[in-house]
Design a binder for these strands. Sequence first.
RNA 1: GGCGGCGUGGCCGAGUGGUUGAGGCAAGGGCCUGCAAAGCCCUGUACCCGGGUUCGAUUCCCGGCGCCGCCUCCA
Length: 451
Amino acid sequence: MIRLHDTATGTTVPLEPRDPGKVSMYVCGPTVYGPPHVGHGRMALVFDVVRRYLEWSGLEVFFVSNVTDIDDKIIEKANAEGRSTTAVAEQYEAEWFDAMEAIGVARPTHSPRATEWVDQMVDLIADLIERGHAYELSDGVYLEVSTIEGYGQLARQDVESLQAGARIEANAEKRSPVDFVLWKKSKEGEPSWPSPWGGGRPGWHTECVVMSLGLLGDDFDLHGGGIDLRFPHHENERAQAIGIGRPFARLWMHNGFVEVEGEKMSKSLGNFVNLPDLVANTDPRAYRMLVLRSHYRSPMEVTKDSIADARQAVARLDAFARRTADLPDVDPAPEVIEQFRALMDEDLNTAGALDVVFRAVRAAHQALDMDDDESAEPLSAAVRSMCGAVGLELSEEPDEVPEEIVAKAQAREDARAAKDFATADRLRDEIQAAGWVLDDGPSGTTVRRGN
RNA sequence: GGCGGCGUGGCCGAGUGGUUGAGGCAAGGGCCUGCAAAGCCCUGUACCCGGGUUCGAUUCCCGGCGCCGCCUCCA
């Protein structure tokens, strides 16, 4: 039985899907106004692991993750650069999916764009007004928080304390400082969609309500995102669903932040790391490894050292994959799989689950050292299965080696055969300096990329 | 001010009321190797502080200290 931590109740509860055997999940995706950073990367990896693990566990997963392609920040960016909001959104959406592909995040089943759901948002807002949960002001339509039963559940705060903390709003007309905007009437030159309240655009919470309910239906299973979305974004989504009387997410999952030097990484602090930069400079699997090594709800430190450390851990798995590449496929060792499953089932203890992986790796190496293939085979199969469950791809294929390096490696072979070890060592040094590693094994020498 | 989280060996980071207390990385020693690499073996007085509960606490409770996050920009 899979148990997950539910932010709404602060407890870890069994995952009991609405439709047995099927899981519907919605994860808040990016607002596409800039290149993704490592925080986005962690979020995407965490939920990619959720999805893969659920699938590995035999569940069918229907995974929706949106793209917010209309927003104040996109408008600002477009104005600053003298191009259309569409051009900005398209560029960064493409960058987003490129980066996701690079880090091995599988495409969602659906990735709807906000601009394609504006009609449904207008309907939702009209419904909220009709039911007395929303009101129109000169600059837009607002949700009246005090009319929503249980508002503050995700924030774990009562409305009064939220109010106490509310920042001073530009709009003093609002009935309460905590009321939030559903529809923004557009000013001159801003993108605009028709509505009963005049031309305008949606606020940033409504899209996720209509897209999640629209694509997954009422009472869907999981709703996820970064911990910062817990409040106000998810709270405000929930408020709208409650307002129109529709059962919303059954379980809320939030991943912890990425930190840099002990502080939250954020644009305002200027300490963010772009995901494309990270991917360009290291094996992208290292980042997944790093993400897996901490619990998804804990803060995670990203530094050069932590990445390099994770890279070495991946290298250990690769070396194992190479050594076991030719073993026959057998059923994975059941006791290993069960340990792994027990850890993962309890709110995705990926760090603990990796222990199981690495212990199986060592046990298989030990067996192979004693020529006990029979013991090694199920362990190797288990390692492959577990890595697959969390999306860690192992590279057992030889690397593409440049001609020049192949030639040097051959020359070294010749020198070794002639017992000219001085020449052999000199050639290996050259090969190493070029970033390649030679492994002399019983069945010959292999060349692979260095770390 | 309100709410929440965290503090484990050189680093990262799981976990547990109790003789043998993960794992990865790094370090030292050894085996293997022509030399390496990979792998294997061995080594390293870990649980912020002070009380309490207990036969026994790193693990539970209370207090303190420190760090971090949220309270409508943010994954």
